[in-house]
């Protein structure tokens, strides 16, 4: 069984992964399915957080303490590397969220809405309603439609 390659001491059971998976899918689903931009960002944050938890739980060692040097050589530490990585990832996440929120504010200012479908409608109106005749493909489509 190839899965034995995972250090079983690191993973005391798989329940943490199940939680992470549920959280991850919830987040992804919200991001994809919601039309409200803010809700999308909430979903995205949920999604990212689940990954942070995946990493952190991966680095946890049963009975291990925080990885701070002590004088006692028998101390068991949790793996500090995932923490470091996730610290970086959190910073990235914050930056992303801030940027996304800033964009949402701008979108709200220029479109007057933060609902994806309404924005899409406005954008369709910006596009010229009548297709350009210089495009041979459009001319073809027009002819097909006309014949019907």
């Amino acid at each position: 069984m190839p899965d034995t390659m995972i250090n079983m001491d690191l993973v005391t059971g798989h329940y943490n992964y199940w939680l992470v998976v549920v959280l991850m899918m919830t987040g992804l689903f919200i991001t994809v399915s919601r039309g409200n931009l803010i809700k999308k960002i909430v979903g995205l944050n949920l999604f990212q957080t689940s990954v942070f938890m995946l990493y952190i739980s991966m680095g946890k060692i049963k009975g291990g303490t925080a990885p701070i040097l002590t004088d006692d050589p028998a101390t068991v530490y949790s793996n500090p590397l995932p923490h470091v990585l996730i610290l970086t990832a959190i910073v990235v996440g914050i930056a992303t969220t801030a940027l996304a929120l800033a964009l949402i504010i701008r979108i709200r200012e220029s479109y007057g809405t933060i609902e994806a479908d309404e924005i899409l409608e406005i954008e369709h109106q910006i596009d010229d309603p009548d297709p350009s005749p210089t495009n041979p493909a459009n001319a073809l489509m027009a002819r097909i439609r006309g014949n019907r």
């Binding site: 801030a98 929120l101 800033a102 504010i105 709200r108 200012e109 007057g112």
Partner: peptide
């Protein structure tokens, strides 16, 4: 800066 940037937008 982020706080100021968000807070200083004139609410529509």
């Amino acid at each position: 800066a982020i706080f100021i940037a968000f807070a200083s937008r004139i609410p529509s």
